[in-house]
Amino acid sequence: MFEARLLRGSILKKVLEAIKDLLTQATFDCDDSGIQLQAMDNSHVSLVSLQLRADGFDKYRCDRNISMGMNLNSVAKILKCAGDKDTVTMKAQDNADTVTFVFESPNQEKVSDYEMKLMNLDLEHLGIPETEYSCTIRMPSAEFARICRDLSQFGDSMVIACTKEGVKFSATGEIGSANIKLAQTASVDKEEEAVIIEMDEPVTLTFACQYLNYFTKATSLSPQVQLSMSADVPLVVEYRIQDIGHIRYYLAPKIED
């Protein structure tokens, strides 16, 4: 028996919004530590890694490890039926070929259940090595979303250049060029609003705007986003989900052959 109950059901709604444009299907791997999902987009340029820890749920039970392959479009449709304040419970029997989502309104007056067929997905699983990154940038997630949106008007690619002074986002295209510089916040009153840079070596990398814009669909999950970069390795864009886990997006850089 698998059962995961979350009073803050809107978290699951937001998680689906954060992955459904990038992934069409994915496997939710459940064990007694929680729920993990790892999947590449169709073009195999980016990778999504989601972790929801068991202790972040209001009730969590997983008697046997189960892997539930799901069509994410279908899951998104179902979760759209949940109210923002609803409690959401996912449950499945051992070896089941369906998963059930139960939504309860705060006053328990409305209870809905949606049963969905599971899929057998044979997806490649990648091992992500432990990496010490040359630069990590923490900044407000809404600011990052704004920058990605603004710069994608100028070109398909965005250059992210991080030095100890700050971080510069640039794009160039037919209509001209755009540069946005963010300085490290001098004094941090509210950490959520700060730009904080940790840098061992300066790094400049180029990324496809389209994917960065997909990643920013996670903005509502966290007030802050963390970007981690090293030369010639994938960028990590991480949104921490309060008290329960994180969603990380890995994006391969564009590099000279």
Partner: peptide
């Protein structure tokens, strides 16, 4: 010009 790399080349298949 720069080319888009795939993600698989950076990580190990399991």
């Amino acid at each position: 010009s720069k080319n888009q790399k795939g993600i698989v080349g950076f990580f190990n298949k399991q």
